[in-house]
Design a binder for these strands. Structure first.
Lengths: 217, 217
DNA sequence: AGCGGAGTAGTATAATTGTACTATTTTTCT
DNA sequence: AGAAAAATAGTACAATTATACTACTCCGCT
């Protein structure tokens, strides 16, 4: 067991990130802190020198949390990952647990829970908390009601993402078809496929999905 | 000119809030920092002892940023207010400028800009930055294109907010009617009125409005 | 050479939303 | 007490979305 750890943090909100750096430096067993604005920047830092723990915001532009984690887990399996997220409803959590992420914290946890989580993932490989427990519970429920389990969540294709973005811009299928030189029917099929994939059954669910996964804003 | 200031901060994300408290304490001319989880709690603190500057997250549950500001400005006109917001697209900024808010910062500003803003509002009553400038520009554009100017934005009634929330939970008008013991028609009328008020013409616009103004998540 | 995924396009029907009004009752404010 | 705002409920029609399928083409992979 190491006495102290290198911790990196990636978050696009500078104020939050810098404040977190400050906070992390107050933790006695954190010896070094670096910060990155997005996933790409974090990977650059990591290539130069690997940390013990990486704290990653799930909602980021440029390279989002999920994508960043995938890279890190594949190329730097020794780095422990703590995900920060806004919403407990997050549909990706289970998927990311399977991927091998080590902890999930809501942004409204207490600083000392973060501290405990850091030491826990560094030493015991995983930090189990209420958020994780509730996601597991939800997954069981989903299976019972016959809904698509969260971890079967498929990624959207480029075309699908493009159409989702236009839906979120308040365009109808007809308008999207005109803009992309596609049949209205094709666009509608894409939308149905997207709804299938993300597990919702109306347009409101799509917009929420877009917000919650960082596809927009 | 005072040598140092009392600063309070209200934000529902504990981790961010606590980290901000830490950060604020590193500012040499900030002598005291207190934090609150929401608007209501902030007002309680203020009633006990008024700060020089209040930093408020626009997106909060319980009592949101806009509501909190209104209270503070009316009852404690000496307190300077700095608003923190995620999105630069925020429809309320102009309205709140008219209300008398003293500064607006995106959550991705640098810590030292926050520091400058605190001293500026405390001494010169206002902190003018790019965000404010861009909102003013947008407003001019809106007037030109004949769109509803941002500051004419009407507030939603309690019932309307209640229904907007249920719409965002992916319920249809029928389901909302059943839940609230209302006619489906009544719910639909409310929705039309909401769409009128917020200046959109479909449900996607409503959900986006809810996200961007902090009505949800 | 054939399989699977992605993208394209279609038909058909049911359900819901969007638009445009009128009208009554209740609450709130002055 | 009277006016204004909010909440309630309705009708009618157009447009869009939701559900459930089939079918063809193109491209990359093994």
């Amino acid at each position: 067991m190491k006495a102290s750890y290198k911790v990196y943090i990636a978050d696009d909100h500078t104020l939050f990130r810098k404040a977190m750096v400050n906070l992390l430096r107050t933790f006695p067993r954190v010896e070094e802190v670096k910060d990155a604005e997005n996933g790409k920047e974090l990977l650059t830092l990591i290539k130069y020198e690997a940390p013990d723990v990486a704290i990653i915001d799930l909602q980021m532009p440029v390279m989002d949390g999920a994508e960043t984690c995938e890279h890190i887990i594949q190329k730097f399996p020794d780095i422990k990952i703590i995900i920060l997220t806004m919403h407990d409803s997050n549909k990706f959590i289970l998927h990311m647990m399977e991927m091998g992420v080590h902890a999930f914290l809501l942004k409204n946890t207490e600083p000392d829970e973060l501290e405990r989580a850091i030491y826990s993932v560094a030493e015991k490989d995983f930090y189990h908390n209420d958020l994780v427990a509730s996601v597991l519970r939800k997954n069981v429920k989903d299976r019972k009601t016959g809904q698509r389990p969260v971890f079967q969540q498929a990624e959207l294709t480029d075309r699908e993402t493009e159409i989702l973005l236009l839906i979120c811009r308040e365009l109808t299928m007809k308008e999207i078809g005109q803009r992309l030189f596609l049949s209205e029917n094709t666009v509608r099929n894409h939308r149905v496929n997207i709804m299938e994939k993300v597990g919702v059954n109306n347009i409101v669910g799509l917009v929420k999905y877009a917000y919650e996964t960082g596809v927009i804003s």
